[in-house]
């Protein structure tokens, strides 16, 4: 049985036809050419297929494609704004927080979800939030540091822009 699904992916309207039992991951990868989400296990254990569904972090291998009907899907392909990387992407690059890179999209999607919910996480909070994302190369050290440093950078950038705003208000 096939299903026609109308959804939004990374802000763009999408319509696709899939089998009723196909997962969101299979449709993203095999029908829509969005291969940035990876299949490491297909059982929700490794997090390499992490995407956001209506603002909630999910393993796309555990979501039926038909469930995307009328909802917002965000994948790794939508994380950068054009040529401008998300601060987490830039930090992962600068801090060597990847080796083979297969788990990296899932870690970035999950880390972004964490910082949106908790902009100032402790190391323990980062480690437990990311415990659903497996990495076999790095021992997690540089990944955890990159997330903590990004949080600190974003916080100081926020404070700076808040400071500039308040300074601007005073001069006005």
């Amino acid at each position: 049985m096939t299903v026609t699904v109308t959804t939004t992916i990374n802000g763009d309207a999408e319509e696709f036809v899939c089998e009723a039992d196909e997962t969101l991951l299979d449709v993203l990868r095999d029908h829509l050419g969005l291969t940035g989400s990876k299949e490491g296990c297909a059982t929700g254990d490794c997090g390499a297929c992490s995407v956001m569904l209506d603002g909630r972090l999910v393993c796309s291998c555990l979501v039926l494609a038909a469930e995307a009907e009328g909802r917002q899907v965000e994948t790794i392909e939508g994380m950068a704004r054009g040529r401008e990387l998300h601060p987490l992407q830039q930090k992962f690059l600068d801090a060597a927080a990847l080796q083979c890179g297969i788990c990296t999209p899932g870690f970035l999607v999950a880390a972004k979800a964490l910082l949106e919910r908790n902009p100032d996480p402790s190391e323990t909070e980062v480690r437990y939030w990311l415990a659903g994302n497996l990495c076999r190369c790095t021992g997690y050290d540089k990944i955890v540091r990159a997330v903590l440093e990004t949080a600190a950078d974003m916080k100081s950038a926020d404070m700076k822009s808040a400071g500039m705003k308040s300074a601007g208000m005073r001069s006005a």
Binding site: T35, G36, K38, M79, A80, Q90, F92, L93, D94, G101
Partner: peptide
């Protein structure tokens, strides 16, 4: 030196093509 890896940008944006891609 701690140089940025040349394949890194593709790996943080999902563009890198692995075996199944």
């Amino acid at each position: 030196q701690r140089k940025r890896r040349p394949d890194g940008i593709d790996k943080v944006t999902g563009r890198a093509r692995f075996g199944a891609d």
